[in-house]
Amino acid sequence: MNIFDELGKIYNEIDNKYASIEVQARLRGHHKKEAEYSRKRQLNDQAYFLFMFTRFEGRVRDISDSLINSKVTNLVDWKINRAWDIINSRYAKVRNYIVNRSEASIKCLFFTKLPLRITNSA
């Protein structure tokens, strides 16, 4: 089972568990409890989305890093190579902004630091 399946399974387990308690509370007319579990499900949704999105972001980052690095390293014609060099330095600034932002969001949500790879500095 890959990480996406694993995360999806855990997300569904939590969601179904809370949904089941939420509906029980509704049947009994316990509206405060119902709202409480609905809110917990919403937070679970958001946490799952953020987790998946950071994985996706990481994948895009890795692929673009490897493409830019290979162009910078392998191109011998300096005219073309220069263009990739410019992309490299501009991209690093944008990329680090995204990484820092994601890291901050994750820290807020999970109160823990996840191992995000930062290779270049702006």
Partner: peptide, 9 residues
Amino acid sequence: IDLLSTKGN
């Protein structure tokens, strides 16, 4: 829209 029941969600 969520559909919640005792039998499943």
